[in-house]
Design a protein around this nucleic acid. Structure first.
Length: 727
DNA sequence: AACTTTGGCGTATTGA
DNA sequence: TCAATACGCCAA
């Protein structure tokens, strides 16, 4: 039996170059064959030399399948198809996925994460004038390239600050990568900084970016990644036969659900993930000190670079295994797994079934808008004896209960696949606890986490117009049953004299003095109203809960506070207001005796006196478009203006789409009254320059608004107390 | 160039 | 000054 696939690349001729693990951990190259294929729609398609077309079973729109003998025959035929104006052709891209699907191969099959051959890469750069690094400038330089492979660091250092030496350095990088032959190249902000910078310097010195396997050069193109509600632009880099992992992007994807990070820089992220625990555990260097340290204190410079590599590895240790495990299930490259949404991956699994069954495929259906989950806030105020119950995996469970495949899924792949993934997940969840070695447990943990994400995305897949086997009516039926079920639970809890506080989609917060110490008894009673296969769980008990509005509340968990909702915990809120709200909540939950009134007064004084740091006042917002694009749009009379975008225009270098910008407001002047007209980057504030001073009136007004909103909770007599209310 | 869903809160901009 | 609306961020 041959070793696990660790690298894969389809060349222009259609040859599939593979790299496999061999005994002892080495890698060996091999070649395989791809028979390129495409699905054909209803139109007329020209014949092609070396291209065969067959009819498929079933009713779907793509009722024929074309296979070509070679990639060149395929490309020639595609050009003819295009010239003939034929439409309705579907080609799986990239070709690496096509081959994996066609042969049912998977990357890293049965390879433990510990045997993945990983390499971290980080560069340090310098500019002669000490300004921001800019690879386009002649006398900017790569000072050093750090590579860390198998835990061992190797430093390639610029020998002299000359073009010759830099050229040599880039050539040494090529040689080092060829020698180390890693499966992955990992770095923090690798796409936007390191690789892009190296590309520009290599171009200047006419050195090929031969960082790929099989002696291949890197390929660059502009790409875009959706991170929750925003898009992030980045210059994508693909290395034939290798995987480029940018932990900067992985961190942002992680933070979609965690939403805890305030910045995505390596140092902060490493502390957040516990890779670096103490400030003195690593060497820190300010950005503008790097070049000087390179010249004056080489040891310190290299220690800094080595720490960056170590931290990058540590962050990837946490974030990469999920994707590594995905690749064992889906016919995608590891890099694709990190840069693609779940729909594309699920679609590929479907297509693999349909391909091998020679079954016609549908076009993605239109999905009409449909109703979602049930959400309601029942009471406002502070309550004690709080319990939280939720339904385990509500939507996947309902899908399995309904046992209904999407309308277009003639082969009936959907439900069996979901069932299989859930069984796998449960098995790995068990193994994550019981496997004999720590490595195996970590492996199982990554696998079960990866499956959990996939399982949960099946419902979203149904409701997405771009999903080939989407079915809006089935998605609507799932949410309808979900609402029905939650209502039943609410009634069951109410029948036990619980005060329902907040319900959202699959969970309920309630107050019950009687059951607070015995949640199991209540659980057992409520669970009776649920059908078999739907499991209710006791998710938590809390001493107190402050209910504000729907999806916005705070819980007291021992001495800690758990905040939920954009009104309370959004990272866009000005820090001084967020902290004020934090104090209010601690007071309301009985953790602080002092009311926030005194702090409110102190803030008023500090703001009026111009003493509050601008970092406390600044609002922060992610840019939804590139500043250049915004500028053009506005020049054409576009709308609306946005304060954060206006602040971004004043920054140098300009931040890019997806990056977060902090801004504050300067006083109103003639014709300059709107926020967007008086927004300034927080970084432009300078205490010693009065013309950069902030507008106290604007911030005092925000305090007034805050007091109007929240004052009722702490310094006005509360309205008639509801059942179970505290204080 | 790429895309999982709906529901909800709060703020700024816009245009009258 | 005020409403409608667009947007950012978050819950699940």
């Amino acid at each position: 039996m041959s070793g696990a696939l660790c690298g894969l690349w389809v060349d222009e001729a259609g040859t599939v170059h593979v790299s496999r693990e061999v005994a002892g951990g080495g890698r060996e190259s091999g070649a395989e064959v791809l028979r390129p294929f495409a699905w054909l729609g209803a139109g007329e398609f020209p014949a092609g030399e070396g291209v065969g077309i067959e009819a498929l079973a079933g009713e779907g729109f793509f009722a024929r399948l074309a296979h070509a003998d070679s990639l060149s025959a395929f490309e020639t035929w595609l050009a003819a198809v295009k010239a003939a104006g034929a439409r309705g052709l579907d080609v799986v891209k990239p070709f690496e996925s096509q081959w994996l699907l066609q042969t049912r191969n998977r990357l890293f099959d049965r390879l433990p994460f510990s045997r993945l051959r990983r390499c971290q890469l980080d560069i340090e750069t310098g500019s002669s004038d000490g300004a921001f690094s800019d690879a386009g400038k002649a006398d900017d330089r790569v000072l050093a390239i750090g590579l860390r492979c198998g835990g061992e660091a190797r430093f390639l250092v610029l020998e002299a600050e000359t073009d010759e030496a830099e050229k040599t350095l880039l050539e040494r990088l090529n040689a080092a990568l060829a020698e180390l032959d890693p499966d992955t190249i990992e770095g923090h902000n690798l796409f936007k900084f390191d690789l892009d910078y190296l590309r520009l310097r290599a171009k200047r010195h006419k050195v090929p970016c031969a960082w790929g396997r099989f002696g291949q050069k890197a390929k660059f193109r502009n790409s875009r990644l959706k991170v929750a509600e925003r898009w992030v632009d980045f210059p994508r880099c693909d290395l034939p036969g290798r995987t480029v992992i940018d932990t900067y992007l992985l961190v942002q994807l992680h933070d979609i659900t965690a939403r805890e990070l305030t910045g995505y820089g390596l140092k902060e992220v490493a502390v957040y993930f516990g890779v670096t625990n103490d400030e003195d555990e690593r060497t820190y260097l300010a950005g503008d000190r790097i070049a000087a340290t390179f010249r004056e204190d080489r040891e310190k410079f290299l220690a800094y670079l080595g720490d960056d590599l170590r931290e990058t590895a540590g962050v990837a240790d946490v974030l990469l295994p999920t994707y590594f495990e995905q690749v064992k299930t889906f016919p995608v490259l590891l890099q694709e797994a990190t840069l693609r949404g779940n729909t594309g991956k699920i679609d590929l699994l479907f297509l693999e079934h349909y391909y091998h069954a020679r079954q016609a495929c549908p076009v993605p259906p239109e999905v009409a808008p449909f109703e979602g989950g049930y959400t309601r806030s029942f009471h406002e105020g502070v309550f004690r004896h709080v319990l939280h119950f939720d339904v385990a995996s509500l939507y996947p469970s309902l899908l399995l209960l309904l046992d209904r495949n999407p309308r277009n899924d003639a082969l009936g792949v959907f439900i069996p696949l979901l069932r299989k993934l859930r069984e796998y997940r449960l098995r790995y969840k068990q193994l994550a606890r019981s496997a004999p070695t720590a490595d195996e447990r970590a492996e199982a943990q990554a696998r079960q986490a990866s499956f959990k994400i996939l399982i949960n995305s099946f419902y979203g897949y149904l409701g997405f117009s771009g999903a080939r086997f989407g079915d809006g009516e089935l998605a609507a039926e799932v949410t309808r049953r979900g609402r029905e079920l939650l209502q039943k639970l609410i009634d069951a809890f109410a029948a036990e004299d619980c005060a329902i506080l907040e319900a959202d989609t699959d969970g309920i917060y309630l107050s019950s003095e009687k059951y607070h110490a015995a949640p199991g008894a209540l659980l057992e009673k409520a669970a009776r109203v649920l059908p078999a296969g739907i499991e209710l769980e006791h998710d938590g008990s809390y001493a107190a809960m402050w209910c504000y509005k729907a999806k916005n509340y705070a819980l007291r968990d021992g001495d800690r506070v758990i905040l939920k909702g954009s009104a309370l915990r959004s990272r866009g809120i000005e820090p001084f207001l967020k902290k004020l709200t934090g104090r209010l909540i601690r007071h309301l939950l009985g953790l602080d005796a002092e009311s926030p009134a005194a702090w409110l007064a102190e803030l008023r004084r500090a703001i009026a006196a111009g003493e509050l740091p601008v970092s406390e006042l600044a609002k922060t917002e992610a840019l939804s478009m590139n500043p250049d694009a915004y500028e053009r749009l506005m020049a054409e009379g576009g709308k609306p203006r946005r304060a954060a975008a206006e602040a971004a225009l004043q920054m140098n270098p300009r931040p890019r789409m997806g990056e977060r910008v902090s801004y504050y407001l300067v006083p109103k002047s003639k014709g300059q009254t709107a926020d967007w007209q008086r927004a300034r980057p927080a970084s432009a504030f300078d205490r010693s320059r009065p013309e950069t001073a902030y507008d106290p009136a604007a911030y005092l007004e925000k305090l007034d608004d805050w007091a109007a909103r929240y004052g009722v909770f702490f310094n006005l007599p509360p309205p008639a107390p509801a059942q179970g209310e505290l204080f």
